[in-house]
Design a protein around this nucleic acid. Structure first.
Lengths: 137, 137
DNA sequence: CCTTGACCTTCCAGCCGCTGGAACGCCCAC
DNA sequence: GTGGGCGTTCCAGCGGCTGGAAGGTCAAGG
């Protein structure tokens, strides 16, 4: 099958497949006499694997490691689990960071009239604050 | 004061200050006879404003808008509040996405032994799943 | 006065993970 | 044979910096 069919079946855009090949995340595809890339069902399976892993937010590098583990019949499941655990930690850090931004923002918004007067604690806080709260309490 | 002092006072690295100037987020700094950039306390104040806004995750473009509103004495606080509200929405979307990844990952991890056997529902799910759950229930 | 070393300048490259577009070739149906 | 829809390559750009090279400047110490 050619690249656009592999793209459709795997959910990975054709451009992205070529990109993955260029960074050696996937092996070089076979070619027809005229230079078109050719994909097998196995290739598509691999692409789907990648797509799912990326969907869980794994970096391309980590996806590479996951692919290697997937391929390796003598892998230890502990290695996979460790990768997943690191990803969860990463997510937790990001969520905590976002939540803290959210808390600051909503707090400031509560104290802002939001009308046509210029008076605005949000701007005041951005101008003054070190702690995101502008010494408001 | 020169750029490294402005950097220290504002918390924005010197390189980043130059970058902000290059993308016109801040006006061109004054120069000494020998070409060194010169900053005033007002410049530092602006940089601190930027730093705080970036710390709340506003894009550089949005920071530009916030700066403009800050400068504009006849602004409506509603405009600022709207920007903040959009940022909160953005955060909520991101948190929801991360949480859903987290849920999938922890669910898969629960079902993975994590020992030296190769058997691993995490890899199986990545290989099979459309829903991130590999038809496990 | 000269050297040293810490600063400053500019410009170019690279990070990540694609994505768009230009400029070209190929293949099939009409 | 011609039109359009595939494929190919390569280069550029997104955001938000960050690192490094190559060179100029400045203040302190010998």
């Amino acid at each position: 099958m050619n690249i656009s069919q592999a793209a459709k079946k795997s959910g990975v855009p054709a451009k992205t497949i070529r990109y993955y090949e260029s960074i050696d995340l996937i092996p070089e595809a076979g070619r027809t006499a005229s230079g078109y890339r050719v994909y097998t069902d196995k290739d598509v399976e691999r692409l789907r694997f990648i797509q799912h892993a990326r969907g869980l937010g794994f970096s391309v590098k980590d996806v590479g490691d996951l692919l290697a583990l997937w391929q390796d019949r003598s892998r230890a499941s502990a290695d996979v689990k460790a990768l997943a655990a690191r990803r969860v930690e990463e997510i937790d850090r990001k969520v905590a960071e976002l939540q803290s931004m959210r808390d600051t923002l909503t707090h400031l918004m509560d104290r802002c009239h939001g009308d046509d007067r210029p008076d605005c604690p949000i701007l005041e806080s951005l101008a003054e604050a070190g702690d995101g709260c502008g010494g408001c309490h």
